[in-house]
Design a protein around this nucleic acid. Structure first.
Length: 733
DNA sequence: CCACTGCCGATTTTT
DNA sequence: TCGGCAGTGG
């Protein structure tokens, strides 16, 4: 009976993938072929048919979202009495798994228990400081570029010395020079960046054979999702853990789109070589898309040379043919998308539709058009909740509490809220810490011996007391209570009010939201050791992304980059900007392998569509403020055998004039700054202008008296106006 | 410590 | 075009 539920409804290939339990297994899971099903059913099979204890199973994913989804779906397969035990199957991202391992055993390789995880912004910030201390011009050597190189080296398990010897070109040389210093400072701060989590986990398992053996025994069965995106460090980790050979990897080389992050497609293509007895199963039955959509996808992807041969077969009826729209320009393209969305909305919910593009900036015209027509949408990703200033500030307090050596966090809160400690004092603390070989917080503890004015000394004293008090009280408080305490003792709300009066409501709401997140964390972890729970909370936040908190129930069209689209599906998909230079991106023109990755991006986009697919491109476009009308259609359209149409005429859009837009909501569109409050209007509003009449406010840019509004008027079309001068009034809806 | 200005640069960003 | 920065001046 149980076999029934675990194996029923699986096709033969899926069944083979689920029941081939011993030995290495590579599952090529084409788009829409039931990949997640296979993984979850396989785990269920291991648990309920083979009788493997749940804590012997490790399932590795790339995103928290994927981990969560698998966990939920596994629970649905559980016999009623087994639910509880299923929870001890270890679902984790690589990074979370490594963080777990290092918290428990990291001391062996010099990682302190309460280490902090640096996010990209922290890293870049640190690198900027180092460049400065080396007198390297941060204009010439862009910190983000250096950070990327170092990150890449780590993901390749290359040491600073390796980078040094391979460095070619001035920027790489600079990166090679910064690398060891960057690492040194991280160690000093008891901090690890994202890739360090992997690097040190590998190092730990290398250093301690006993621990490795223990882990191999514990995780006797390992499953890996999205194997095509594995980088060298991750691969190395897997090889060590899965020396027993019970490794099941699931992936699709055609959907490898993260090589620029160090992912190496060869990991999946040479799995059979690396694990000699590997069984290979190909899932080529597609349950998602119509045949017409799959045909186009195949026509595109077959142009890649570096791929395993396979072709998806539709299990669904043929459906409506995909279409290409050749737009006069970007506005026309946006209008086309909006019109179609409106039309399709009689058949599908907005949340069944999505617009994909190559670059984040490409969302803008679509957003404006959707705002103008009151089409509800959500931009997936964008400025994340966890990147918001107020959230990072409060997080920095927690970081200092959990890890007093975290100088980066300390620097962040040193003068936040403003307490009259300026750059010169900050530099002094930095320097003293440097020469004394201790943390800046340690220096603060000895403020008496610091050579500063009495006034500054007093402020340092107060800061020290404040932090000491917080740290002491943290032992007996929940994370939420600690947060509330930080907010109250620093008078945080007053600080928000003062520095950003217009954005106050927004920011205050974010602080509230953070309380809620802390509450939920406490409920989940049911913690005992408080320091551990602060550490745990900070870790959780560091490893979360904004996508983890999007509300899936809201009825909105999703706007996202092609990278963000992987793993999702929609009834109707719009893939816009299919132009040479955009998709494929210009930077890929010179390289065969990069072009192939662009092609895979295109493929990923196409295969997200269940029923309707719209591909569009424009003949003329504004690029970096310059109008260009020599834009050529993407080669991928030609490869797909899709003729471009006659350039469409500019269509003047009919303003719908109705209700407030859907775009703006707390999480995703928080960019409405001071101006919104100052002038009482925000994007999406129906407004009236004394001369031009009624229209829709599309966008606000610039600040203070330079702030300009982009308005689409019903009668006279689009105009830019200075907010300070234009007397815009909001029309009630 | 801030507000202003002028310059540069501009893919993608699972963690 | 536009946003993020470093450098400047009050």
């Amino acid at each position: 009976m149980e076999t029934q539920s675990v194996l029923s409804d699986l096709n033969p290939a899926q069944k083979e993938a689920v029941t081939t339990v011993e030995g290495p297994l590579l599952v090529f899971a084409g788009a829409g072929s039931g990949k997640t099903r296979v993984i979850t059913h396989r785990i269920a099979y291991l648990l309920y048919e083979i009788g493997i204890p749940p804590d012997n199973i490790l399932a590795v994913t790339f995103t928290n979202k994927a981990a969560r989804e698998m966990q939920t779906r596994l629970l649905r397969l559980a016999p009623p009495d087994r639910e509880a035990s299923d929870r001890s199957v270890f679902f984790a991202t690589y990074h979370r798994f490594c963080a777990w391992l290092l918290r428990a055993y990291g001391q062996v390789v010099g990682v302190q228990k309460h280490f902090t995880i640096f996010d990209d912004a922290d890293s870049v910030h640190l690198i900027r400081q180092i460049l400065k201390s080396f007198n390297l011009d941060s204009g010439l050597y862009r910190p983000a570029a250096i950070a990327a190189m170092i990150d890449r080296a780590k993901n390749d398990l290359r040491s600073p010395a390796d980078l040094q010897s391979q460095a070619d070109g001035p920027v790489q040389k600079a990166a090679a020079k910064v690398f060891p210093e960057y690492d040194r400072r991280l160690r000093e701060m008891n901090a690890l960046d994202f890739s360090d989590l992997l690097v040190f986990a590998v190092k730990l398992l290398d250093t301690s054979p006993a621990l490795l053996r223990q882990m191999q025994e514990k995780f006797a069965y390992i499953l890996v999702d999205e194997y095509q995106d594995t980088n060298i460090a991750q691969y190395s980790l897997l090889r060590k853990l899965a020396a027993h050979g019970n490794l099941c990897v699931v992936g699709d080389d055609d959907q490898a789109i993260y090589s620029w992050r160090g992912a190496d497609i060869r990991n999946i293509l040479s799995f059979e070589k690396d694990f000699p007895n590997a069984r290979v199963v190909k899932l080529e039955e597609n349950y998602r898309s119509t045949q017409g959509i799959l045909d186009i996808a195949y026509q595109v992807i077959r142009h890649n040379r570096d791929r395993a041969d396979k072709r998806l077969q539709a299990t669904r009826h043929s459906g409506q043919a995909p279409m290409v729209y050749t737009a006069a320009d970007g506005y026309d393209e946006a209008a086309f998308v909006a019109r179609q969305v409106r039309e399709l909305s009689s058949e599908w919910a907005y949340s069944d539709m999505a617009v994909f593009y190559r670059m984040t900036a490409q969302s803008r015209l679509i957003e404006e058009e959707f705002l103008a027509r009151a089409i509800p949408y959500v931009v997936v990703s964008g400025v994340g909740f966890y990147e918001r200033r107020e959230v990072k500030d409060l997080l920095a307090y927690l970081r200092v509490i959990a890890n007093p050596a975290d100088d980066a966090a300390f620097t962040r809160i040193l003068n936040v809220p403003k307490r009259g400690i300026g750059e010169s004092t900050a530099a002094l603390l930095r320097e003293s810490a440097r020469s004394a070989g201790c943390s800046q917080l340690d220096i603060l503890a000895r403020f008496d011996s610091i050579d500063v004015s009495p006034a500054v000394k007093k402020r340092l004293h107060e800061l020290h007391d404040l932090l000491t008090d917080l740290r002491n009280s943290s032992a007996s408080l929940s994370v939420e209570e600690i947060l509330r305490r930080i907010v109250s003792v620093t008078d945080f709300f007053a600080y928000l009010e003062k520095t950003d009066p217009a954005g106050f409501d927004e920011r205050a709401a974010n602080v509230q939201e953070l309380y809620t997140v802390a509450q939920e964390f406490a409920r989940r972890s049911g913690g005992s050791d408080q320091t551990a729970s602060v550490t745990g909370f900070v870790e959780e936040l560091s490893l979360l992304t904004d996508a983890d908190r999007l509300d899936p129930d809201a009825d909105r069209v999703s706007l996202m980059t092609l990278h963000a689209a992987k793993g999702l599906e929609f009834s109707a998909v719009f893939l816009i900007g299919l132009e040479e230079g955009s998709l494929p991106h210009a930077s890929a023109f010179e390289s065969q392998s990069e072009l192939e990755e662009e092609r895979r991006l295109c493929y990923v986009g196409i295969t997200r569509a269940k029923d309707r697919l719209f591909l569009s491109h424009a003949c003329s476009r504004r690029i970096y403020g310059e109008s260009r009308d020599d834009i050529r259609a993407s080669r991928f359209l030609e490869e797909a055998g899709l003729p471009e149409g006659e350039p469409a005429r500019r269509v003047s859009s009919d303003p719908t004039g109705s209700i407030r837009s859907g775009g703006s909501d707390r999480i995703e569109r928080m960019a409405l700054d001071e101006e919104t409050a100052a002038y009482g209007v925000s994007p999406g509003d129906r407004i009236r202008h004394p001369v031009f009449g009624a229209g829709v406010l599309l966008r606000i840019s610039g600040r203070a008296e330079n702030a300009t509004a982009m308005v689409r008027f019903d009668r006279v079309g689009k105009k830019r106006l200075r907010l300070a001068n234009a007397r815009l009034s909001r029309l009630d809806e």
